Simulated assay, not measured.
Amino acid sequence: MKKISVIFILPDLETGGAERIVTTIANHLSRDRFEPKILLLRKQGGYLSLLKEDVEIIDVKTERIRHSLKPILREIYRRKPDIVFSGFGEVNAYLSLFIKIFPKTKFIARETNVVSEHVTRKEIKFFYNFYNNYQRIIAQSDDMKKDLITHFNIKKHKIVKINNPVDFDFIDAKLKTSVRPESFRHNYKNIVAIGNLSARKGFDNLLKVFSRLKNENILLHILGDGKDREMLHQMKDFLGLDQVIFHGKQENPYQFLKHADLFILSSRYEGFPNVLLEAGACGTYSLANNCPGGINEIIQDGINGEIADIENHEGFAQKIIEVLHQSYERDSIRNSIQSRFSKNIILNEYEKVLLDLMK
């Protein structure tokens, strides 16, 4: 039986959510049925080392996404894959206009965010007029699916909802070598937040919340880097938040999650937050802002976490204190995530979409 050739498209394999998911899919697709390749605009990123050797990397050596369209189209024309799987919003948008020039190739777009919240530039929004050219569009959450239908008139039958997978084997391997971070104080409750330091992750709101917790023995550990780093550091100093520690990007964030007393997701919007899944995989209870992006699909109230409104800074601060005074069963938290989002469950759904396209 001829194998189905699939080309996945990403800007790079830096350690982000979309990159993690595509790496997982490419690594674990059945080799009896599929031949996966990954086209990168630039061959760089921490996940390159995790990619299996039989996954070919196509490097088009292009720094900017807006300059990538011509080399991407050239590779599709030359290689004539059965399926093109584009996994990054801006590339998805540009590519949609050109799908019909490849009648023998099926195209899938995997959305990474609630589009109406995330895409603000008019020149990119224009391309969503052609989004129905895709044979399938994968939405990670009900919020994302509803947004595509309501704001971009995407045909309902083209959208397939597939939640993100959690690779428990990968996380457990990382946890075997993890130790309690030195910055965690034993006489304090240690809270962890992880994400790109940008407006969408809402760390400004989280700092305002912690300005109400100065008299509590609570430390906030923020992992990540981004364009708002300086602003957030200045905000921390202005508010006098000695109990907030910025750690930058961490190679093994799971040791922070495992030993945390609580994980907080402060985002203004999400796609389907991997870090919320990973916190649960580490057995850590979560408190998440009530924002679009599948939060209510992940959180099982009182089992693996709770949802509150972070814009109510005082109320969210009181919720943190309340949660920290409770105790939670780590195995139940892990099982809550594993039973719904484990790698095998989600990968079966991806394989089904790919196979159905070739019928």
Rank of each mutant, 00 (worst) to 15 (best):
M1K: 11
M1W: 11
V6H: 02
F8T: 00
F8I: 03
F8P: 00
P11Y: 03
A18P: 04
R20E: 07
N27Q: 07
H28W: 09
D32M: 10
F34N: 02
I38S: 00
I38F: 06
I38L: 11
Y47H: 02
L51C: 05
E53A: 14
E53V: 11
E53H: 14
D54T: 09
V55E: 02
E56D: 07
I57W: 05
K61H: 14
K61Y: 09
E63R: 10
K70I: 09
P71V: 06
E75Y: 06
E75I: 05
Y77L: 14
Y77D: 14
D82I: 07
S86T: 06
F88Y: 07
S96E: 05
L97C: 11
L97H: 09
F102I: 08
P103Q: 07
T105F: 12
F107L: 06
T112F: 05
N113Q: 07
T120Y: 15
K125N: 07
F126V: 15
Y128C: 07
N133K: 12
R136T: 11
I138D: 01
I149F: 14
N153A: 06
K155M: 06
H157E: 10
I159D: 02
I159E: 05
N164D: 14
D169P: 04
I171Q: 01
D172V: 13
K174D: 09
V179S: 14
S183C: 14
S183R: 15
H186S: 15
N190A: 12
V192A: 04
V192E: 01
G195T: 07
L197A: 08
R200H: 07
F203K: 00
F203G: 00
L206D: 00
K208I: 09
V209F: 09
V209G: 01
F210S: 04
S211Y: 10
R212D: 08
K214P: 08
N217D: 08
G224N: 02
G224F: 05
R229M: 15
E230S: 09
L232Q: 04
Q234F: 07
Q234L: 10
Q234A: 15
D242K: 13
V244I: 13
F246V: 14
G248T: 12
N252E: 09
P253G: 04
L257K: 01
K258W: 12
H259Y: 15
S266G: 06
R268H: 11
Y269H: 05
Y269L: 06
Y269C: 01
Y269E: 01
F272E: 00
P273N: 03
N274C: 12
N274K: 03
V275C: 03
E278D: 07
A279F: 09
A281W: 04
S286T: 07
A288F: 05
C291W: 03
P292Q: 03
P292V: 08
G294Q: 05
I295A: 02
E297V: 10
I298N: 01
Q300T: 13
E306R: 08
I307V: 12
A308L: 10
I310Q: 00
N312T: 10
H313C: 05
H313Y: 09
E314G: 15
A317S: 15
A317D: 12
Q318G: 09
I321L: 10
I321M: 13
E322Q: 15
S327M: 12
I333Y: 01
N335Y: 13
S336Y: 11
I337V: 13
S342C: 11
I345H: 07
I345K: 06
N348T: 13
V353A: 03
